[in-house]
Nucleic acid binder design. Structure first.
Lengths: 215, 215
DNA sequence: CCGAGAATTATGCAGGTGTATAATTGAAAG
DNA sequence: CTTTCAATTATACACCTGCATAATTCTCGG
């Protein structure tokens, strides 16, 4: 009889496929945000998800599969809250637009990690057709929603498409700057600037008004 | 006497330090634009520069040294043309601002390679102190120049700092969208949108006017 | 023509990467 | 309590990475 090495193999508990996929995707996004794509090695991802690298192959086939899944989740996490905020703001077009803008520049979404995460994927977006499709879909969904909100305004000095492109660009830029130079702005300043600028762009002076007393 | 292997060593010609450094930096930027930071390995960079990897160590010490040098050159290439364009536009404040905006969104600077190159560095910018300093310097130089141009306008409905931040964000966003979704715009549309939006933001209706006949 | 020194190349190394495949184990079903 | 099969781990491999050091070769001054 062999000495029975008592199995120094790591013990484990089984989990549902969904939970494992979610844990692995979350690990990827964490690592990419912290250390760029180069930090998201299969071994590092597996370790952070509390798993061994073989599981990644089991669930995603290959590293590209994992990265694609992670990208999809990232885009959804960036776009959906804005759509939901507008929906929750009621029927008044101005209030809806205000909620959308505020959600897009929400301080929680405005940290450098998110920007870094997004930037880390840009290159892959340009080469991998599946990623590019996901990117354009999420992107245009955001811009089209903006265009709908703008078209609902009582009067609009610019063609809705032009206004949507410009306002979307403004949001992107502010999101970038706010995330990359957090100490360059006082809290809430980015949102305030967005509303002020949008008010001038669209000729809607009441846009920046909040319910609180004005300072 | 040994068989004298006739030296299968690669022949080479000496070159100036400046030329070698420039060639290596250019190789880095090319590779990063094409394949992200992960593509800029020492061996790949050396090969593209027509040199062997040892030279990189010789001139830059370390890979980080090389990456820093490349980043500095990239920032300069992005910011300087705009400053020069404004300078070349004469004394009229509106003309100067118009030239600055047009240069920032020049079709040549608006290709996806540049955007990818810039994005690829974002993560490093957040961790490497030297890179972050270079980033902030270039970035604020751009924005401060914009603020000066805006302050020189006859009237300004927004505080110059706010206007500069907003307009800078607009430029960043348009540059991004134009570079990333080139087929989403007709040629020149991005520049036109920038001028139109800036005109509304700053209340300078004559900004979009060009010297040609209006369509 | 020739020596000297720096510019350049070649080689080796320790470690990390993605992937494939085989071995094991957990837990549900009988 | 077994049996069974998928979920999970372990191991091996070929390749690539950045770095260090030693060996060459180009070029310039005498």
């Amino acid at each position: 009889m062999q000495p029975a090495p008592l199995s120094d193999r790591r013990p484990y508990i089984r989990d549902s496929e969904d939970a494992r996929r979610a844990a692995l995707v979350a690990a990827v996004l964490d690592l990419v945000a912290e250390g760029g794509v180069e930090a998201a090695t299969l071994r590092a991802v597996a370790a952070r998800a509390g798993v061994t690298p073989g599981l990644i192959r089991h669930y995603f086939g290959d590293k590209d599969g994992l990265m694609r899944a992670a990208y999809g989740q990232m885009m959804a996490a960036m776009v959906n809250p804005c759509l939901a905020a507008a929906e929750a703001a009621g029927a008044d077009p101005v209030a809806r637009l205000r909620a959308y803008l505020a959600a897009a520049l929400d301080p929680a979404a405005l940290d450098g990690r998110t920007v870094a995460l997004w930037a880390a994927y840009i290159h892959r977006t340009r080469q991998d057709a599946a990623l590019r499709a996901a990117h354009e879909a999420g992107y245009l969904a955001f811009r089209d929603a903006l265009e709908v909100l703008i078209a609902a305004l009582p009067l609009c000095p610019l063609r809705p498409r032009v206004a949507a492109i410009a306002l979307n660009a403004l949001l992107d830029g502010l999101w970038l700057e706010g995330g990359l130079l957090p100490q360059g702005f006082i809290p809430g300043e980015v949102q305030r600037i967005a509303l002020t600028a949008a008010a001038r762009l669209l000729d809607v002076p009441e846009l920046p008004e909040t319910e609180g007393p004005r300072s």
